[in-house]
């Protein structure tokens, strides 16, 4: 991945497509807006709007059984919905990649976001998911590149945590 033009969001879409990610599962989220809109617009990929993040775990594992790469886009609050389903990822040694937009993190103004936001990394790690937090724009692409390799070449479960330092805190 040498492309350096465009915003990090645009580069992120290019990176995922160059790595043949074909199924994008998501629960709508402002931080993932660009990827979601690109996935909806691109007839070569499946955009899968989920009612609950736990569906995304099954979706990604099912895609792997069929030989395709999927990614789950969710917010930190959604991580809590996935925990027992991550048993499937862990026990089955499924390669798994999720991009998590963080809330309850840097500069958060909504107190309701803190319990899950502050627990996100610990909860994921407790279920065997490697967490790679990203704090700056420059680190987005190298981190997701690393995560793609760790997940789809080495067979790990990996979460890239896009912090509020990076994506900005919503105003309240």
């Amino acid at each position: 991945m040498n492309k350096t033009v465009g915003t990090w969001q645009e580069q992120l879409w290019d990176l995922l497509r160059q790595n043949e990610v074909e199924i994008f599962g998501y629960v709508p989220d402002a931080g993932h807006k660009h990827l979601i809109n690109q996935a909806i617009a691109d007839p070569k990929v499946h955009d899968v709007s989920l009612t609950n993040e736990m569906e995304g775990i099954g979706l990604c594992c099912g895609a792997n059984l069929g030989g395709k790469k999927a990614v789950l886009l969710m917010q930190s609050s959604g991580v809590g919905n996935t925990i027992n389903l991550l048993s499937l990822v862990k026990l089955g040694n499924f390669p798994f990649l999720t991009l998590v937009t963080m809330r309850g993190n840097f500069g958060e103004g909504n107190p309701w976001q803190f319990p899950m936001g502050q627990g996100t990394q610990a909860a994921l790690e407790a279920m065997g998911v490697i967490c790679l937090p990203v704090w700056t724009e420059e680190d987005v692409i190298p981190t997701v590149e690393a995560a793609l390799t760790m997940a789809f070449k080495s067979g790990n479960a990996v979460a890239v945590l896009l912090t509020q330092r990076l994506i900005g805190a919503k105003e309240f």
């Binding site: 736990m54 990604c60 099912g62 069929g66 389903l85 499937l88």
Partner: peptide, 25 residues
Amino acid sequence: LYTLGGAMGAAASMGLGLALARPDK
């Protein structure tokens, strides 16, 4: 056949992922 022994609730979404990945099957 892929059978679950836990992760209760995953079967249908797993089938969805597989169906999207393999439209030929």
